[in-house]
């Protein structure tokens, strides 16, 4: 096994891992750092369950290798509730009942977070566009879109 030190900023804090540089960010988050909030769905870039923010933009952690993460900033779902208080997006998903089995939700939450950071007052089309890469097999899309709208409202208050 070829390992290397990779340094990056994870949820606001500098971290250093000693891992193979071609390991995916998803593997390192879940298996090395034990941050299991980020889910492994298809491992193929189709489902969006593994979505994290890389320098503020939504990307698939399953299609990102550690060498690409070096020196960059990564935010996972664990990074949203920094002080234990859920983020406005997380609250909106819970309060709307947008969660059924929950497996896809961390990915949806991160894609939503990226959308609201770039565009604080998105239209419904903007929301559908931003979430088009995230699949929910409990077919909860209607509630999910409602949750995003609620998050927009709450964040605007």
């Amino acid at each position: 096994m070829r390992r290397r030190v990779v340094r990056f900023i994870l949820n606001g804090e500098e971290v250093e891992v000693y891992v193979p540089p071609a390991f995916t960010l998803l593997e390192v988050l879940r298996d090395v750092l034990h941050l299991t909030g980020t889910k492994d769905g298809c491992s193929d870039g189709d489902c969006g369950a593994c979505t994290v923010l890389l320098d503020g933009k939504a990307v698939h952690s399953c299609l990102t290798i550690m060498a690409q993460v070096e020196g960059r900033e990564v935010t996972t779902v664990e990074g949203l509730a920094g002080d234990g208080e859920p983020d406005v997006v997380q609250k909106a998903y819970v309060e709307t009942g947008a969660i059924q089995c929950g497996y896809c939700i961390p990915g949806f939450i991160m894609a939503t977070k990226a959308l609201l950071t770039a565009n604080p007052s998105p239209s419904e089309d903007d929301i559908l566009e931003a979430l088009r890469g995230n699949l929910c097999r409990c077919t909860g899309y209607v509630k999910i879109v409602e949750a995003v709208k609620k998050a927009v409202e709450e964040a605007g208050r």
Partner: peptide, 27 residues
């Protein structure tokens, strides 16, 4: 050469592409 890697990583994981060392130009 690996740029974004969104297809290359899949090809490598699936064994479609011969395993080679990578030149990561992403930075």
């Amino acid at each position: 050469v690996i740029a974004g890697g969104t297809d290359l990583i899949i090809q490598m994981k699936d064994g479609i592409m011969p395993r080679k060392n990578l030149l990561n130009i992403y930075s």
